[in-house]
Amino acid sequence: MIPAAFEYHRPDTVEDAVKLISDLGDEARVVAGGHSLIPMMKLRLTGLSHLVDLQGIGGLDNISISNGTVTIGAMTTQHELIVHSGLATTAPIIAEAALQIADPQVRYMGTIGGNVANGDPGNDMPGLMQCLDATYTLVGPNGERSVKARDFYEAAYFTAREEDEILTSISFESGGGGYAYEKQKRKIGDYATAAAGVLVKISDGKCSAASIALTNLADTPIYCEAGVAALLGSSPDADAVTAAVKASVDAADPSEDNRGPAEFKKHAAGVVIRRAIERAIERA
């Protein structure tokens, strides 16, 4: 499996990389870990004549945590997310989700930036970032801008990123509390049949903050507003959990594929959402 010919570039700075992709136009693609893009190139499902490798740019793989604000460079690999001790205490849901992505070899190469920017509905990080209410930083020819993860995804592989922009980092406020990322998959390495990320805070016996987001249950990740509303202010007892599960499943819009018909996926969604909510409450 040999991809079509292309020219390889390894710029040293974000500015040089942005200049390359804006000069070369839609013939150019950036590559981070390459574990989504290279398989597509090998299958000749994507046509490009210039590959702009971001590995030579310094500082894109930093993780910084200060006053509860977590900032993760786009080139940070899933492996680095899993072994980072600061993240393990500040936002343990990140490693819990990253450990469920692909297999060890893929996690050494696959990056958080590539995972969120690609727009593949099967990727886990977009749903997780919506759950965390993360913000993406994009750099283009006219400078830098921020886009909320909850506003970023338009359709499968279509995002708010312009062709000449590069996603350079991700940041979010870590609020603590209970968390869980639950994923149902057919085997190691597969995308989710259904997956859900949940954050819950409980104070004085009441749910004071919550977030629920879904992976691979529509052509974009889904932030479940109605599911969250069902939990907020509740004790949260079995009725509140059931209402939140129902509202979240209603927000899912899966399509049939080799992982099963839409009905089955909605059933699997109900199971993983319930597990995620219950585990997050346990940990809150």
Binding site: Y8, V31, G34, L51, Q55, Q105, V106, Y108, M109
Partner: peptide
């Protein structure tokens, strides 16, 4: 690393 999923240039 799975060397079938990395270009030698990388």
């Amino acid at each position: 690393v799975k060397s079938c999923t990395v270009f030698a240039a990388q």
